[in-house]
Write a protein that binds this DNA or RNA. Sequence first.
DNA 1: ATTGACAATGACAACCGTTTTCACTTAGAG
DNA 2: CTCTAAGTGAAAACGGTTGTCATTGTCAAT
Lengths: 143, 143
Amino acid sequence: MAAVAGKALGDSAFSAPGQRGTRQRRVIREWLGTSAAFVSAQQVREGIAAKGDAVGLTTVYRTLQALADAGEVDVLRTDTGEALYRKCGTGHHHHLTCRSCELTIELAGPPSVEKWSQSTADEFGFNDVQHVIELSGTCSNCR
Amino acid sequence: MAAVAGKALGDSAFSAPGQRGTRQRRVIREWLGTSAAFVSAQQVREGIAAKGDAVGLTTVYRTLQALADAGEVDVLRTDTGEALYRKCGTGHHHHLTCRSCELTIELAGPPSVEKWSQSTADEFGFNDVQHVIELSGTCSNCR
DNA sequence: ATTGACAATGACAACCGTTTTCACTTAGAG
DNA sequence: CTCTAAGTGAAAACGGTTGTCATTGTCAAT
């Protein structure tokens, strides 16, 4: 149910068996690539509409979810529960976000967390640990 | 806007000017104290109802929010956007949560993060940094 | 003890992001 | 070209949360 096959199939995602290449998916992925910030599903739709393309909100939600499942985008929740998406660079990283303007900076984690999280997991008998670190503060502009 | 004054006022919260001591608030705080896990607003209400007390859902939401603002409870969001609350121990801490059963363990942070987050914030010109670390994994029971 | 002002409550409706439904369209294999 | 299952999207459903507003309760002042 959850897991999508998604093997290595060249560099074009959505080539998994039973997945079709449609205009909508192409447009959404392209648009995401141009945005550096975290955006909501609605913003994606608006951004695309502003370019003259139209994609149904339902499709935006479904596509973003698929991208998230495939690990192509990061997802995070605002404190109102809204989901924000962002095309993520390769590899593991964390975020420093301005509480006022939402400016987000991608960070490498502190060198020691990997070890710490693993040993903590071991200590409590947990497997497959993942860690998320979010820093928030007030950026120089919003000071 | 974010920061709440919350001075030392003895050990009774809800003593801020213009705040009254009501049955509902007492009951909610008491019930929270008996639950070690993260719970939703609805669960709080049900738990209280099961004890024979009745509190309106609206009041539960408002009270939990007030407690969260006052720093008396931790808030986190499930991946469905639902808010979960938990009476937190004193001081700063993090969580290790089982992705399957939601079992949550309270952790002290790795020793170096404080320094790291401060220096990272400095580097990017951010003030008032806060950090959140969430570890997730599969606990031994859910293996 | 009584009063009165205003905080608090709670049933209910509104909100809003997200998901489901379902009839219609379309990509792409044969 | 044809066929079929995947994809689409408008609209409705959903579910957690927040707003509304008439009523109730607290507590300081009397």
